[in-house]
Amino acid sequence: MGDKKINKPRRIIIREEYCMGCRLCEVWCIVAHSKSKDIIKAYKGQEPRPVSGIYFEERGAISFTLQCRHCEDAPCLEACLTGAMYRDKKTGMVLHNKDKCVGCWMCIMACPYGVIKPDFKEKKVASKCDLCIEREFPACVEHCPNEAIILVNKKGERIDKE
């Protein structure tokens, strides 16, 4: 998988009927957002382990993951005081700039899906799905063994791995 920065709108779709609850999406989300991008180093090395941008929900046999929906009408954008939360013009994604973040957590309060995670130590936003903007294919989509997480384009057509 190349690490070309993508410049087209895309969207992640969750199919809960195929989610087997393995939580490998979380594992690979962490790896993808780590410094080394190496699974062993990310988990067992000296570098700080990032926080997964994925929320996993489960009750009984039903499970699914949830990540930032990149809403068209995003309340977190409205709530952000400093402009740390911004919309990428090309892709339409809602992204977060840690340098500008002051840790007021208004975005966390505003998010109707609860998919932004706080960082208690640094008092900043710890993690939010960036749709793996640095990668051609989001890590969770690429590694879901059952294709429960899929990627679609603007028209809703599925984008498959090569």
């Binding site: 087997m20 393995c22 939580r23 490998l24 979380e26 594992v27 062993i40 988990y43 067992k44």
Partner: peptide, 13 residues
């Protein structure tokens, strides 16, 4: 054990 990252995927599956 060198490779096990304690992700618990095996435990869940």
């Amino acid at each position: 054990d060198e490779k096990c990252i304690r992700c618990e995927v095996c435990c869940r599956m």
